[in-house]
Amino acid sequence: MAMKDMNIAKLASVDVPLFNGIVQDLFPGIESPVIDYGKLELKGMGLQLIPFTITKVIQLYETKNSRHSTMIVGNTGSGKTVTWRTLQATMSALCRSGDAAYNLEFPLNPKAVSLGELYGEYDLSTGEWTDGILSSVMRAAYEKPDEKWILFDGPVDTLWIESMNSVMDDNKVLTLINGERISMPEQVSLLFEVENLAVASPATVSRCGMVYTDYSDLGWKPYVHSWIEKRPKVLGSVEGMGRGAVQR
């Protein structure tokens, strides 16, 4: 179970049978138990509840339970945003029923701002320190013990991600250029939504749990079905008008 939990979520669909075969060779005649999450019900939000999406939501939930830093990797249109938003909606619904801590997210695009705006910087004219977006969010995370996700929705590169390595490891401490150290609370976790890890260093990748979403597994049919369901229900009225004309 440990081997499957740490590896299957990051594999492409074509590699999963090969991995399962290796596990069967290592543990012959042993069947892995299927975990029943009970009240972990998926809220469709007007979307198609297909097995691929359900599997990825559960894999994200399991990965976040074992790591405080998680990366959802996949091409555009592979369901990355739907995966974490579905899990968020489910956890929020469970909280309202009294079963879990409420979930909040702080989405930001690290490539849309400068490093100073992201982490904080000194004003060269006055010498005053100004907090950045991330440092302000981490300070605000202490206010309530509710579960919180800091979501980085943007490409991962060495310009900004290397400063996060100390936050992603067991220290969970952000060190600013003014020497201040901000520790990340236990109820806060990091979530990265990226297209690929082409320029990410091994030090960064090894600190994160990985969930890979493959567009070939999702396909185009769920988009078409959702689009059809949102169209006006005019087919029945048109058919009724045709039958009336025939009778007349």
Rank of each mutant, 00 (worst) to 15 (best):
P107Y: 00
K10Q: 07
G154S: 02
F192R: 04
I177P: 03
S163E: 08
N171K: 15
K39N: 02
K148C: 12
D36F: 09
N103H: 14
A2D: 03
M1Y: 10
Y37K: 01
L134V: 05
G219E: 09
W84A: 01
D153E: 08
S114H: 05
I30W: 14
S13A: 07
K64W: 06
L60K: 06
E121Q: 11
F106V: 11
S13M: 10
S92G: 03
L40P: 02
V34A: 13
R231I: 01
V57T: 07
V23W: 15
K148D: 10
P202C: 04
E41N: 09
N75V: 10
E180I: 02
A140R: 13
Q187T: 09
S114N: 10
P110Q: 00
S136K: 12
L235F: 12
P202Q: 07
P202E: 05
E121N: 07
N7K: 14
T63A: 02
N171I: 05
D36W: 14
Q59N: 08
E143K: 15
V156D: 01
R248Y: 12
G240C: 04
I35M: 12
A198V: 08
A12E: 08
L115R: 15
A9E: 07
L190I: 12
E180F: 03
T76Q: 06
A2M: 01
T63R: 04
E186T: 13
M241P: 01
S201P: 04
H68P: 11
F27K: 01
Y122D: 02
G244A: 00
G98F: 09
L108G: 06
D131M: 12
V238L: 08
W160V: 11
S135A: 01
T90Q: 01
K148S: 11
K233L: 12
D99Y: 00
T55W: 02
S32D: 14
V173G: 08
L197V: 04
D99Q: 05
S114L: 04
R181W: 11
R139I: 07
V82F: 05
W84H: 11
W129G: 13
G244T: 00
M71W: 03
D214C: 08
L49C: 06
V57E: 00
A141H: 01
T213Y: 11
N75Q: 11
G44T: 10
F52R: 08
Y223T: 10
R67V: 05
G44Q: 09
S201D: 11
G98R: 06
C208K: 00
P51Q: 05
L218G: 11
N165D: 03
N171A: 07
Y142C: 07
D157S: 15
M91W: 14
L159Y: 08
G120W: 00
L104C: 13
Q88C: 11
S189Y: 00
G44S: 10
